[in-house]
Design a protein around this nucleic acid. Structure first.
Length: 285
DNA sequence: GGAATTTGACCTAA
DNA sequence: TTAGGTCAAATTCC
């Protein structure tokens, strides 16, 4: 049996389950969607997640490891720079994968509270308007790898598609406030894991594909992490669900540091006992 | 004068 | 081979 194909199918199933939950949540006015349906969707999603980890345990693959470890492919120029300290290798990069990206279409270029610096503009084939490239202002002073692309897609009324790549690791953000909303105290540090590709905690407004129009194909980068304040200095916050600002979506579990160690090694090198994984992945309400 | 933008060149993935 | 992403010098803005 080709376990890699199985894995790919599971990844696809996970994506579909994620989208299903998003759709259900989108329509959730408690009149049309019963808690049972929500629970059902959540369980389907969890089953896919658990199965993927199980598969990776017994058939470790680079493919899945890439999915479950914090993405590094994005800092292409970063890795490239360190790799090629030989000078002036302009344009040395890896073309962006679909890790951690989401789109937003708006009538004006999106204002998301972050500071961006334009670093390029390009005519794109078969498009009427050029595409603009932005990086976080704190790319260097804050080592923030977030970038976005803005492209006008319509003349009248003017419509812009903004595609975000990566998450902000700088503190120059409004999004941190969104994150903070979901936790009790803003004083110390924890790690937020999100089984979704839409970090940092996009609102539905920021992240249109989270709605029923999820025809996009967000890549399955299951684990993203970012340090955020939390109430207990040794605790880490985990989320098995997309961390939307809608609190009903949150299914966070605070883990002590030693549990985090177990889980992180489970996710990264599959060296952990299966029961530990199941324990840690058992996100019930 | 420093920060931001423009734009042609460079480089790689597809 | 080429479309697309990034770099960096030149230019503009504040």
């Amino acid at each position: 049996m080709d376990h890699r194909k199985v894995q790919e199918e599971l990844v696809r199933g996970h994506e579909f389950a994620t989208q299903l939950r998003l759709v259900i949540n989108e329509k959730d006015d408690s009149a049309t969607t019963t808690p049972f349906v929500q629970t059902l969707a959540k369980n389907v999603l969890r089953s896919f997640t658990n199965t993927l980890f199980l598969l990776d345990k017994y058939y470790p693959s680079h493919h899945l490891s890439n999915l479950v470890t914090p993405t590094k492919s994005e800092d292409s120029q970063e890795s490239c720079k360190s790799f090629t300290s030989f000078k002036n290798r302009r344009g040395c990069y890896k073309r962006k994968r679909t890790t951690q990206e989401w789109e937003k279409v708006s009538e004006a270029p999106a204002v998301d509270g972050h500071h961006w610096r334009k670093y390029g503009q390009k005519e794109i084939l078969k498009t009427k308007y050029s595409r603009n490239y932005y990086r976080c202002t704190h790319k260097y002073d804050g080592n923030c790898q977030a970038t976005k692309q803005v492209q006008r897609i319509q003349e009248d009324p003017p419509l812009y598609k903004t595609t975000y790549f990566g998450h902000h690791t700088c503190n120059d953000l409004l999004n941190s406030e969104i994150i903070l909303d979901s936790i009790s105290s803003p004083s110390d540090t924890s790690i937020l894991l999100s089984f979704n590709n839409s970090f940092p905690t996009p609102t539905k407004q920021d992240c249109p594909f989270l709605s029923s129009s999820a025809s996009l194909d967000p890549s399955p980068s299951f684990i993203k992490e970012e340090r955020i304040p939390s109430s207990s200095s040794n605790d880490y916050m985990l989320s098995s669900e997309p961390t939307l600002d809608d609190s009903s979506w949150h299914n966070n579990v605070t883990l002590p540091l030693d549990h985090w160690d177990v889980l992180s090694s489970a996710l990264c090198d599959s060296s952990v006992d299966l029961d530990d994984i199941n324990l840690l992945l058992d996100f019930d309400d």
